[in-house]
Write a protein that binds this DNA or RNA. Structure first.
Length: 399
DNA sequence: CGTACCCTACACCGGTCCTA
DNA sequence: TAGGACCGGTGTAGGGTACG
């Protein structure tokens, strides 16, 4: 991991001051810091450049969809800000409530049932993956785009007012194309994306303290929401309810039919996979699990680099939702490389794994060009580093 | 110790600039 | 030229503060 925490005292106090002492009319500032924290964790190798990092507002807006999802239940709104009396009536608590509620309604319509609090996380993962979001209706995609636009506008508020005065901690977001040379973008950033610039030291602080930042954000968010007057005074909400809503994560294993089909085709063609944990051979006719290397319960990522055929018995009984120890990880890496190389031999899986890797890891091209690794070697290295970093920084159980 | 006024942080609105 | 991005001004709730 990075520098010792003592070097980050100044930056960490910036974070805790915003959370604890900045005045707040809405939960925006808490949501902003939580989203930055999640972005830092989800782009695991960007820090290696030691430069300022550009984060598209779009990426932050995605997290906001997930965080605010439980609060925009059409039948049970939970207010996230004060409502002022205007000439036109009571204004809304948060600028994007209408847009996000409408997205949630469209979602409930498409799945045919009421939505769970964690569906926001589920949804944003679906939208990130090109091959998945094409399965949704144009009406739904349009609501999604409208919500993202509304959220990006709202995001400017806490960015502007974080810390004393205006624009004191963060600069006004501008498009990536006018930031060239002043740092590096997170993977997947487009020239036209309006970006928040996070300075290199602050990025490192978030990396070192991600666990603490998340815990503090959720704690403050619970207290903030509990304090706000809600519509239904007879059914007061307490911090326990809010805590549950804020920390609910998708635990249902999504059907990975598309991925399994293509892996089955490879097996039929005679390709052999090796379970990275037990080194058991997986060939046609041998049953396997499509293991999430990073467990769903830790970070729900269904990208192809995170999926590897593995020994079903070991996956279900030994690994479960834990992360590998560093020794186990080291011996698994060659087999992961082998798995990724297998993916490349399928036309469809090859384009998907390239897309998924490019959207997540920044250092793969450099590992290939400068360290002369193959694509599969580079990917297994960055994935291995990612698993290791998360296990250490979150102090997770390992096997 | 109460109250009037000020400040903050946001929503909202209307005008202007830009571009397809 | 229309529609969207952009910009700055205004109104408001509630906390802070000075003052009687």
């Amino acid at each position: 991991m990075g520098k010792p925490m003592s070097l980050n005292v100044a930056n960490s106090s910036v974070i805790s001051t915003i959370l604890r002492h900045d005045t707040k009319v809405t939960s925006y500032k808490i949501a902003l810091l939580r989203a930055i924290n999640d972005v830092v964790v989800s782009f695991p190798d960007v820090y290696t450049y030691h430069q300022n990092v550009f984060v598209p507002l779009r990426a932050l807006a995605d997290y906001w969809i997930a965080y605010y999802w439980p609060f925009v239940d059409p039948h049970w709104p939970i207010y996230q800000g004060r409502r002022s009396l205007r000439a036109s009536g009571l204004n809304s608590d948060i600028a994007f409530r209408q847009a996000l509620t409408s997205l949630r309604l469209e979602w409930e319509y498409s799945i045919g049932t009421a939505s769970k609090p964690s569906d926001g996380f589920f949804l944003i993962n679906e939208m990130k993956i090109g091959r998945k979001n094409q399965l949704y209706s144009p009406a739904f995609l349009q609501k999604y785009q409208a919500a993202v636009v509304a959220l990006c506008d709202a995001l400017e508020m806490p960015i502007c007012y974080a810390g004393p005065g205006k624009w004191s901690i963060f600069a006004k977001p501008v498009k990536f194309k006018s930031l060239q040379g002043q740092g590096i973008p997170v993977p997947g950033t487009l020239l036209e994306d309006r970006c928040l610039v996070i300075n290199a030291e602050l990025w490192q602080t978030f990396r070192d303290m991600s666990l603490w930042v998340e815990a503090l954000c959720i704690h403050e968010w619970c207290l903030f929401t509990e304090r706000l007057p809600q519509e239904n005074q007879h059914q007061p909400i307490n911090r326990g309810d809010i805590y549950r809503l804020l920390t609910d994560r998708p635990d249902n294993r999504r059907p990975l039919t598309w991925e399994r089909n293509h892996i089955d085709i490879l097996l039929l063609e005679g390709t052999e996979f090796i379970c990275p944990w037990t080194e058991k051979s997986i060939t046609q006719g041998v049953s396997y699990h499509l293991d999430h290397l990073m467990p769903l319960s830790v970070y729900p990522m269904n990208e192809l680099w995170n999926l590897a055929p593995s020994d079903p018995h070991f996956n279900a009984h030994q690994k479960r939702d834990r992360l590998p120890s560093s020794q186990r990880l080291a011996s698994a890496l060659p087999h992961l490389t082998h798995t990724y190389a297998n993916y490349l031999t399928s036309l469809q899986l090859a384009s998907v794994i390239k897309e998924d890797v490019n959207g997540r890891f920044a250092t793969v091209p450099q590992l290939i060009n400068q360290a002369h690794l193959s694509f599969p070697q580079a990917v297994s290295q960055v994935v291995g580093d990612f698993l290791n970093d998360v296990a250490v920084s979150r102090n997770l159980a390992r096997f």
